[in-house]
Amino acid sequence: MHTLEIRDLVVALTETPDKPIVKGVSLTIKSGEVHAVMGPNGTGKSTLSKAIAGHPDYTITSGDVFLDGKSVLEMEPDERARAGIFLAFQYPSEIPGVSIANFLRAAVQARLGEGEDLDAVAYYKNLYAKMDMLKIDRKFTSRAVNEGFSGGEKKRCEILQMAMLEPSFALMDETDSGLDIDALKIVAEGVNQLRGPKLGVLLITHYQRLLNHIVPDYVHVMYDGRIVKSGDKNLAIELEAKGYDWVKDIAVPAMS
């Protein structure tokens, strides 16, 4: 059982530390839970997830993030990843010339102990099984990571990585955007298969339709750098019906 605790987190661009984007977010995710975060464009959802993963463009000016009670702020991004935090990017980078197979192999290898060698046969067996589960053509193993991938292929590749690396917490930033209905179902099915007592999920999305497939335990509404309302899955339905203007009205009094 693991816990990821985000406490009073304030995040700014590293170059403008006095202008916070995330303005004090607190949220605790336990293994087995799925927390959905919804909110209008530019509200700081991606900033929150990238700051937790250790992106150098962002600086945490106050507050903290604890993984099982231990602050991750002094950890490098790769250490945070090995400790169990996985970020599924809203806009995954293209890595020219590095094949998915080699890339994931390096990532899996990085999780082995000193002097421990990767079992290549077992690795490929696992990789192919996960690809089959996500209905990704096996030919993709030799394609360069995300290079020339369609939007949907990129998102599926993020889930493939998550499936291979078995994090204890996944921060999934709009993994559903860019997916057609079929791909959405495949990705949701993939996430549901990974879901379980060993995985906690922070699911950033704009669309209630995803939450029909991945039913969240909690829904949080983010507005202007803050979580202004939290509830269960019904909050997403309400939000869908009423729109973000509704939370704006809640947010204003909350701020005063």
Binding site: A53, G54, H55, P56, E76, P77, D78, A81, R82, F86, L87, F89, P92, S93, E94, I95, P96, G97, V98, N102, F103, L104, A106, A107, A110, R111, A144, V145, Q161, L165
Partner: peptide, 26 residues
């Protein structure tokens, strides 16, 4: 690109090695 690799648990030195290999693939 560097951050993407690091976010998968790959340390900076290993990330550089992979990116150089990728650079040479062409």
């Amino acid at each position: 690109q560097e951050f993407y690799l690091q976010s998968r648990g790959i340390d900076p030195a290993q990330a550089h090695e992979l990116l150089v290999a990728g650079f040479f693939e062409e």
